[in-house]
Design a protein around this nucleic acid. Sequence first.
DNA 1: CGCCAGGACGCCC
DNA 2: GGGCGTCATGGC
Length: 271
Amino acid sequence: MTYFIEEGNIVLTEPVFDLDQTLDCGQAFRWRRLLGGSYAGYAGNHFLHIGARSGAVVFFDTSEEDFLGLWAPYFDLATDYEALKACFCADETMRAACAYAGGLRLLRQDPWEALISFILSQNNNIQRIKGIIERLCELFGGRFPAPGELAALNDQALAPLRAGFRTRYLQDAAKQVTDGAVDLDAVAAAPLDQARAMLMQICGVGEKVADCVLLYGFYRTDAFPKDVWMKRVMERFYPGGLPACALRHAGIAQQYLFHYIRTCTSIEGTR
DNA sequence: CGCCAGGACGCCC
DNA sequence: GGGCGTCATGGC
C-alpha cells in the first residue's frame, strides 16, 4: 500500500480499485454516486467522500489516522487482490469475471449493519434496499441505529421505512442482539457452521442471508451466499460445483461472479 | 398492467 | 429432504 497526503486528502496510488464495481455492486447499501463519479457514504457512522483521479483513489478530507484505522481495513487494502485474481484465473469463467470486474474489492463491514442490511435484502431489489436503509437512518438523525435503539421502535415507529414483511424481522434481530440471545462477538469467534446456525436463530435469517452477513460483516471469505444470481451462475457454468481455484476464497470469487453475471450484458441466456 | 427483486417460512407430501 | 404459495413494496 502506497499513499501520500495532499491538502488534507489521502491519495492512494497502490492498490488502485474501481469505485463503481466496489461501492455499487450490491454488497453495501449506504453509498451514493455523485456527479463526476465520486462516492459519498458511510461505514458504520463514519462518513467518507471518495473519488478517483488519474490512476489513484482519493479519500477526501481524511486524516491519516482515519485512513489507516478505518478505511484501509474497510476497503481490505492489506489483501493482495492481484494474487487472488491470478489464482482465480485458472478457471475460464473466473478469468472472464475478473477481466470484467477486476477493480472490485470486498468491503469489510460492520457486523450489525450487515445483519440489518441483508435481512432487508430478501426478495427485494438493490435500489429499494438502499431506500429502506436510508429511511431507517433518517429516523435516527442520519445515524445507523444501535441494536438497542432499533429494538425500542414499535411497528408504528417503523412504518415510514415501508419495509413490508421485513419489519418484524428487523425487530427480532434487534431484540435478540440487544438481549444477548444472539451474541455477535460469539458469532465472530465461532466456526463457520456454528456461526451460521447462530445467525439463523433470528427470524428472517435463512442460509443465504446468514452467509451474506458472515462474508460482508465478519469477513468469512469461505462463506458463499447463493442468491438467485449465483444459482444462475452455478447452473450455467458450474453444474458440478465451484472450481478448485475458487474454493479457498469462495466468498470473494462469488463477488466477482455476482457482479459479472448481473451486469455484463454480453452474457446471454441468463438474465 | 405483470414481472421481478442478493429469500424465508409454513405447510404439504 | 424437496416443492409450492405467500409475504409487502416499488422499479421497470
